[in-house]
Structure formats: structure tokens, C-alpha cells
């Protein structure tokens, strides 16, 4: 045992680490919020849109679920500028995360929608509600209740995936840790601290998800 642990340099960089942590949190939260909108809209399109729209959504889902996330980031950050769309690394990271989580989120929410009994829709129709009203007021909440655990697991995966965005130098926690490591050569120490911070992020999001469930999605019991 010749290696001596020394956290002093790493702790000295705490303002950078804190900023990285904060950036990861904001990036994750934004991607979750926008990803949720994409997932709900996509699931609506896939369950009740016209045939051409369903096919486009299917292709999108297959494309994303069968290619690596890192490649998706590179395509958005390095590839799209060739088509005249240029993003900052943070914007590209957010876009990539949304595009990625949307593909999984659509399938999860679609499963929730399909778990709703036909009679619910018929009751809505018989009351004179229009299709979008039926979706919004009758189907959506029970559908989300039904698949909430899968959805939140997917969102935690999204948060962990923000780490991959360091590859395009987005200013999130893993990139910050890499900077500190190359400056101090304290690899173990810095990544140990990063691990703890990611764990903390997970605990934070799980707590928020549980709070949302308690406040809005609790199912009545007998």
C-alpha cells in the first residue's frame, strides 16, 4: 500500500464541484420536464394519431432505442451544425437527453394509456366530451398512475446519462470531475467524491418523485 489518500486538493475545488452538481441537477430536471411533455404528446400521437404520425413515432423510437446515447449526442453536437443547426454544448446535451428519454417515455406512457379500460373512454364520449378532453381529463392521470414507477426509473437513468454529456464538454458534474482530476492527478479521490454526489442526486430525485406521487398521484384506497 504505497498510495496515500489525499482529499485536500479535491475538497479545495468544492466551488467547481458544487457548480457541476448544480448544472447536472438543472440539466436533468429540465430534460425530465421537457421529456415528459414529449412522452405524453408522443404517446397520444401513437395511440390515437393518424397512421403516418404513428409510423414516424415508431421509427423515432426504434432509432433511439437501438443506438448508443453517446452517438446520439455526437450526431446532435457535431452532426447537426452541418445542417445549419448549431448548439452550445449544454443545449446539445439537453436536446440529446430529451430526444433520448422521449423514446422510452412514449412507450412507457403508451403502456399506461392502454391499461385504461375501454369503458372509461365510452363514459367520456357518452357525456359529450371531445377526444382531447377525454385524454386530458379521463385517461392521462390514471395512465400515469399505472406506470409511475417505470417512468421515474427511466428519469433516474436520464439523470445518470447526463454524465455521458461530459464527452462534449457540457459543464456538468462528470466534466468538472475530469477537469479536477487532470489538474490534481487525484483520480480515486475525485471520482469517489463524484460518486457520492451522484448518489445524492439520485436520493434527491427519488424524494421529489415520491413527493409528487403523494401530492398528485395517490390512488384512493378502500
Amino acid at each position: 500500500m504505497s498510495y496515500e489518500f489525499d482529499f485536500a486538493d479535491v475538497f479545495a475545488a468544492w466551488p467547481e464541484l458544487l457548480q457541476g452538481l448544480l448544472n447536472s441537477l438543472v440539466l436533468s430536471a429540465l430534460a425530465m420536464a421537457i421529456g415528459m411533455v414529449v412522452s405524453v404528446a408522443g404517446a397520444l400521437g401513437k395511440t390515437s394519431g393518424p397512421g403516418w404520425l404513428r409510423r414516424i413515432i415508431d421509427e423515432y423510437i426504434e432509432l433511439i432505442r437501438n443506438t448508443p446515447f453517446l452517438i446520439q449526442i455526437f450526431v446532435i453536437y457535431f452532426g447537426l451544425p452541418a445542417a445549419g443547426l448549431k448548439f452550445s454544448s449544454n443545449a446539445a446535451a439537453l436536446l440529446a437527453l430529451v430526444v433520448n428519454v422521449g423514446a422510452y417515455g412514449i412507450e412507457i406512457i403508451r403502456a399506461g394509456i392502454e391499461s385504461i379500460q375501454k369503458g372509461q373512454v365510452e363514459a367520456g364520449k357518452s357525456l359529450g366530451m371531445r377526444p382531447l378532453q377525454i385524454f386530458r381529463y379521463i385517461i392521462l392521470k390514471p395512465a400515469i398512475q399505472a406506470i409511475y414507477p417505470s417512468l421515474t426509473s427511466q428519469f433516474i437513468l436520464l439523470m445518470l446519462n447526463t454524465s455521458v454529456c461530459s464527452a462534449i464538454a457540457a459543464s456538468e458534474l462528470t466534466a468538472v470531475a475530469g477537469d479536477i482530476q487532470s489538474r490534481t492527478f487525484r483520480s480515486f479521490e475525485v471520482y469517489f467524491v463524484a460518486t457520492c454526489l451522484y448518489l445524492g442526486l439520485s436520493v434527491f430525485f427519488w424524494t421529489v418523485f415520491a413527493g409528487i406521487e403523494r401530492a398528485f398521484l395517490r390512488k384512493p384506497t378502500r
Binding site: G119, Q120, E122, A123, K125, L127, G128, R130, P142
Partner: peptide
């Protein structure tokens, strides 16, 4: 058709109340 349906109430064998 919604304008017609809202004038016609329907009660189902399985109730179909909105559970939430």
C-alpha cells in the same frame, strides 16, 4: 356528434365511473 351525445345520458353495466 359530441353535441348530440351530451343530450343523451348513458348508464353502463360496469358503471365506468372515473376512478381518480
Amino acid at each position: 356528434i359530441e353535441d348530440i351525445r351530451r343530450e343523451i345520458g348513458m348508464v353502463f353495466q360496469s358503471f365506468n365511473l372515473f376512478p381518480h
